[in-house]
């Protein structure tokens, strides 16, 4: 019987190991799986490589994971944001590595990784400093650079509704990177507002089919990062 429901959030992240590559969904606070990230902080895994569009804000969620010293390297497109101070400070003092990737290239690298495609050519970054070290090739008179697919050991994502088979739908712009990350990670861990029985989501509207999902944990009232930051919360 297939049932991906995990009773506790600490069980859901228990096997994330030191040195793991972890994709974390979200664009700014939209779609950020704050409770899963906090569970990962409690769990203690360190020396992580984290893939996310940003680097969090305030001292909660991803920023708190970084502040706790658990992240050795960030792969992201925009490591500056409103209320983002944790990453800049560590970066300037050389205590965290950054791989800066254009946002569309980041999305496509994750998509390719999930699709078993090791690399692809794109015009993005041609003639810019971010082309450095990459193979260039001409197709039809236009130059492109080779980018590599990106995979991960784990993905932490946030859904609006899940069923026990792992089928997912999202809420508005909280979808962003999550569907691609779910395909690119060996183990995809989902926090969902609602968990329903199979059949509780119309198959016509499923965004992430259940085979991409390994574990689902219910967080009925997830915190919004901006509300935590406004309240001055610092996790843990």
């Amino acid at each position: 019987m297939i049932n991906k429901d995990v009773a506790s959030i600490s069980d859901a992240v228990a096997d994330i190991f030191d040195g793991a590559t972890v994709m974390i969904g979200g664009f700014g606070e939209a779609g950020s799986p704050v409770e899963l990230i906090h569970a990962l902080i409690d769990q203690g895994a360190k020396n992580l490589t984290v893939v996310n569009n940003n680097t969090g804000s305030g001292e909660v969620g991803l920023a708190a994971l970084i502040k706790a010293g658990r992240v050795a390297k960030m792969i992201c497109s925009y490591p500056r944001s409103m209320n983002s101070t944790v990453f800049p400070e560590l970066y300037k003092s050389g205590r965290i590595e950054l791989e800066l990737v254009p946002q569309g290239t980041l999305a496509e690298r994750i998509r390719a990784g999930g699709a078993g495609i090791p690399g692809f050519y794109t015009a993005t970054s041609v003639g810019t400093p971010l082309e450095e070290g990459k193979e260039r090739k001409t197709f039809g008179g236009r130059d492109y650079v080779l980018e590599l697919g990106l995979t991960a050991d784990f993905a932490l994502i946030k859904a609006h509704r899940a069923d026990t088979h792992g089928n997912l739908i999202y809420n508005k712009t909280a979808r962003n990177f999550a569907p691609a990350m779910a395909t690119a990670a060996k183990v995809t861990i989902v926090q969902t507002r609602e968990l329903v029985a199979p059949g509780g989501i119309d198959p016509e509207v499923v965004i992430t089919p259940g085979l991409f999902v390994n574990r689902v944990v219910t967080v009925a009232n997830p915190a919004h990062e901006s509300a935590l930051v406004a309240a001055g919360v610092s996790y843990p």
Binding site: S77, Y78, P79, R80, F87, P88, Y91, K92, L98, L100, V101, P102, Q103, G104, T105, T122, A123, T124, S125, V126, T128, L130
Partner: peptide, 12 residues
């Protein structure tokens, strides 16, 4: 702090 977002994708 280098930050590019989607700008390079948009112009390309």
């Amino acid at each position: 702090i280098p930050a590019v977002g989607g700008a390079m994708d948009l112009v390309a």
